[in-house]
Amino acid sequence: MSDPTIQRRLILERRPQGTVTNEDVVLHEALVDSPGDGQILIRNHFLSIDPAIRDWMSERPSYLPPIRIGDPVRSTVIGQVVESRVSRFRPGQLVVGIGGWEEYSVADAGQFSLVELKPGDEAQHYLSIYGAVGLTPYFGLLEVGKPKPGETVLVSAAAGAVGSLVGQIAKIKGCRAVGIAGSDEKCRWIVEDLGFDAAINYRTETDMVASIARACPQGVDVYFDNVGGQILDATLLNLNKDARVVFCGAISSYNSTEPVPGPYNFWQILARSATIEGYLVSDYLDQFPQGIAQMREWVGTGRLQFREQVIDGLENTLDAFNLLFEGRNEGKLMVRVAP
């Protein structure tokens, strides 16, 4: 294959207000840059589509700086090295790291890791079950939530890439697993296929406090929070003494254009001697090999299932991204840029 000269990129043209539109993120053609010292040029095969990207598009303080206006939208990517200006990477190798919504990314080599596929692996698995998305529930539940056999673990966005794994790991650890999802179909899937003990459809329930109490009659010992908002507020009134809240995300407010109130029931953290801890999987980078090995074992023995939804075409990336906020994604969402 000849060296690339022109590529397509999705550029952040302005800060979105609410749902991201085609005026906020615009498809452009551009020259493919050459890597500088310490950098690599990657041909992106898959883009990871994650809720946190919406926060990076804003100017709100976050764990990564805002995406600059005029830059490609930032995301985790997996692809093939085309050119390298660092000794530890060679052309042709498969790598994963922080790139962008574009066909080719130039990035500092330190932002990327080598991927060595094992029998049965597919490249995109390193954006899902063997990537940050799979390790987020692993370390978040086990290291922060610290579930004990017999306890009740409640997880929001339970049919999503992270939440669906949280419930299954809870079951592996001997807990009662209850999931909150946004449709009857999703609720059936997590109970009938994934082995959750109960599920709550938040779109049809009119009293979430009572719904959680019915599904968790012994109270909630660990709440893995992916959404924030009213569901967090309802859960706080169902916490047991010494409960742990793992604060992993707040997708319910990422598209908000006004300040978000609450949680009104935050007093329950004190009343129940509970703990709430913000959690980033990047804090456990040095333990990724052990985490991947354990996830691989559980997948291989059939104890852990995962679902991937792959959308083809860079031009469809924004539509794919907005599926997350409409509750219409099915498992880990990715865009395939190149075969």
Rank of each mutant, 00 (worst) to 15 (best):
96 V>S: 11
42 I>Q: 01
19 T>C: 07
48 S>P: 07
275 T>H: 10
165 L>N: 01
339 P>D: 12
317 T>F: 05
202 Y>Q: 08
41 L>K: 13
167 G>M: 01
51 P>N: 06
125 H>Y: 15
158 A>E: 01
12 L>N: 02
214 R>L: 06
277 E>N: 10
23 E>V: 05
159 A>F: 01
251 I>H: 06
103 E>I: 02
302 G>H: 08
177 A>C: 08
108 D>H: 14
2 S>K: 15
186 K>A: 04
204 T>Y: 07
137 P>S: 13
155 V>C: 02
240 N>C: 09
261 P>R: 14
144 V>P: 01
63 Y>L: 12
114 L>I: 14
297 E>S: 15
222 V>S: 00
139 F>P: 02
179 G>E: 00
262 G>F: 10
339 P>Q: 08
143 E>G: 04
179 G>W: 00
317 T>Q: 06
140 G>T: 00
114 L>F: 02
231 I>V: 07
269 I>H: 09
71 D>T: 08
313 G>E: 12
192 E>Y: 04
11 I>Q: 10
301 T>V: 04
187 C>Q: 06
77 V>M: 03
108 D>E: 11
238 N>K: 05
58 S>T: 14
46 F>A: 00
111 Q>K: 03
35 P>T: 10
157 A>N: 02
318 L>K: 10
203 R>E: 03
215 A>G: 11
50 D>Y: 05
47 L>H: 07
307 R>L: 07
4 P>C: 10
317 T>D: 04
80 Q>D: 13
220 V>Y: 03
3 D>A: 15
151 E>C: 03
232 L>A: 08
77 V>H: 03
244 R>N: 13
141 L>E: 00
151 E>N: 09
189 W>V: 11
52 A>H: 10
338 A>P: 01
167 G>W: 00
193 D>L: 11
331 G>Q: 02
316 N>E: 06
69 I>E: 11
320 A>Q: 13
14 R>N: 08
133 V>D: 11
82 V>T: 04
221 D>W: 01
207 D>R: 09
215 A>T: 09
258 E>V: 10
298 W>M: 15
39 Q>V: 04
127 L>F: 05
221 D>R: 02
158 A>G: 02
63 Y>E: 03
6 I>M: 08
62 S>P: 09
15 R>A: 04
148 K>W: 10
192 E>K: 05
288 F>G: 06
293 A>T: 05
315 E>I: 03
48 S>F: 00
5 T>D: 10
314 L>G: 07
59 E>F: 05
133 V>L: 13
277 E>R: 11
316 N>Y: 11
236 L>V: 04
121 D>C: 14
283 D>F: 12
308 E>T: 09
332 K>S: 06
222 V>M: 01
104 Y>R: 05
268 Q>V: 04
